[in-house]
């Protein structure tokens, strides 16, 4: 009898809804300052659970699979658009939040969330490539260095494990528009990547700091702020400014449909967007802040952080049509078959 009682209690516990003061965040790995998480927990008494992803695709797949259990996700602009179109996000009336007032005008009413219903920007930046200056001393002013590497870089470059921004960069280099549905144009992208493949050591989005910082490879496809942080930590890196341009991204806080704790999620977004906290976040994350920060406290300036202030055109990734996306996937599976 006692046993039945115990089992009964255990089942009741399992069946009970998630604790009201738990916030589950699915974010780019290590993208939020730990001290802010602690501060938020102290201020609200809530428990924050963090779970990291390394690609927008992972985030999208998890939300599509349903009942992800997350209250906040931080995808990039083109995935925000897809998630909204697919009905995966909660309408949080973002424009009524105090955080919205802090957002820079240039990020309001953008194509991915024209009515500002679903998202509050978190960080923005670019995707390009970086070189380890201990290993390579040539020029980095063009994507040709990366896609058609000189002999000193052959076998010493690494790419990402997902096509998203890599294909975008190849398109910039070739002058092919993003999300092209033209097979002959995408064939050119494929040919370029295929010709590059013999010189690529790895296609991997994990552990990039180590691979490039330790000199395992001499050039790596990467993001601006990550290069900055690793360079600040002592690695001799340079973020390339290719004349063909960089691939732009902007990550936003969004709330998945059916999230258990929408109010707490909104509270967290407000919390992260105050001037004081946004500054702490900027100094930690080292990617540009799309909300107002305290410039006098900002750690990174054009002088010490050239990565964040590109001198070449920046083109933001778009949400491709299914037909265009199929071509991107075809390029990638044919490349790695």
């Amino acid at each position: 009898m006692k046993k039945t009682l115990l089992t009964g209690t255990a089942m009741l516990c399992l069946a009970a809804p998630a604790f009201a003061d738990e916030l589950n965040i699915y974010y780019w790995s290590d993208s939020i300052a730990p001290e802010l998480i602690e501060k938020f927990e102290a201020e609200t008494g809530a428990t924050v659970n963090l779970d990291g992803f390394n690609s927008n695709e992972d985030a999208l797949t998890k939300l599509q699979a349903g009942a992800s259990g997350y209250d906040i996700v931080t995808p990039s602009q083109h995935f925000v658009k897809i998630m909204i179109d697919e009905g995966l996000l909660e309408d949080i009336d973002a424009k009524d939040l105090a955080a919205y007032g802090a957002v820079d005008e240039r990020w309001k009413g953008q194509w991915w969330d024209p009515e500002n219903d679903y998202s509050i920007p978190m960080a923005y930046g670019t995707a390009g490539f970086a070189v380890n200056r201990d290993l390579y001393d040539g020029p980095v002013d063009s994507w040709s260095v990366y896609f058609e590497p000189p002999e000193s870089l052959q076998g010493k470059i690494a790419s990402l494990s997902y096509p998203d921004e890599v294909v975008g960069a190849a398109e910039l280099y070739l002058g092919v528009p993003f999300c092209s549905e033209d097979k002959s144009e995408m064939k050119k992208v494929y040919d370029l990547l295929m010709a590059q493949k013999p010189f690529v050591a790895a296609y991997s989005s994990d552990n990039i700091e180590n691979r490039l910082g330790s000199g395992e490879v001499a050039a790596h496809f990467w993001w601006d702020g990550n290069v900055l942080r690793t360079r600040d930590a002592g690695a001799n890196l340079e973020y390339a400014m290719p004349k063909e341009g960089l691939v732009g991204w902007l990550d936003s806080y969004v709330v998945p449909k059916g999230a258990a704790n929408v109010e707490l999620a909104k509270k967290f977004i407000e919390f992260m967007s105050t001037e004081e906290n946004a500054t702490i976040q900027y100094n930690y994350y080292a990617h540009s802040a799309p909300v107002k920060i305290d410039e006098s406290q900002a750690k990174y300036t054009p002088e010490n952080a050239p990565e964040l202030f590109p001198t070449v055109p920046v083109q933001f990734s778009k949400a491709c049509s299914p037909a265009a996306q199929d071509l991107v996937t075809k390029v990638w599976t044919d490349l790695l078959q």
Partner: peptide
């Protein structure tokens, strides 16, 4: 294959992962 092989050659496991992720199929 992903970590030690450098992800250069797909295996069935990575192919399945790609199709559910980036491939969206």
């Amino acid at each position: 294959p992903m970590l030690l092989g450098g992800g250069k050659q797909m295996m069935m496991g990575t192919l399945i992962q790609t199709q559910f992720g980036g491939g969206r199929n």
